[in-house]
């Protein structure tokens, strides 16, 4: 179902059930600073994944790398502050 198209009361599910997964709503444009990951320094302790309020950082086991999903990252900087080896730095959006 497309959430953009408005539905009439006959078409929506009963009892105010939310039916669209929130992942289809992108919160990435909220951020001012974006985290940049340094794969050399990173020890893959996955603390950034555990502490991220938005679940925007995931660990990919096959390639052993941290994936930053900028579609959802709100740029709070918890990952940078909590990284024990400073492998994450915050860069202003738009800067390379």
């Amino acid at each position: 179902m497309n959430p953009k198209k408005k539905k009439g009361w006959k078409e929506i599910p009963m009892a105010g059930v939310c039916w669209v997964p929130s992942t289809s709503y992108l919160t990435g444009d909220w951020k001012t600073y974006r985290p940049v990951w340094d794969s050399e320094k990173c020890t893959r302790c996955v603390l950034c994944h555990l502490f991220c309020p938005d679940g925007a950082i995931t660990w990919k086991a096959q390639t052993n790398e941290m994936i930053f999903n900028y579609d959802y990252c709100k740029g709070c900087g918890i990952c940078e502050a909590e990284c024990p080896v400073d492998a994450i730095s915050m860069k202003l959006e738009g800067e390379p």
């Binding site: 997964p21 929130s22 919160t27 893959r44 603390l47 555990l50 309020p53 660990w59 086991a61």
Partner: peptide, 20 residues
Amino acid sequence: AKEIAERTDLFMSGHRACAG
């Protein structure tokens, strides 16, 4: 930690809580 990281996030991204 990695076992926990491999578990699916049941509270998904895209919720509208404030940054941080």
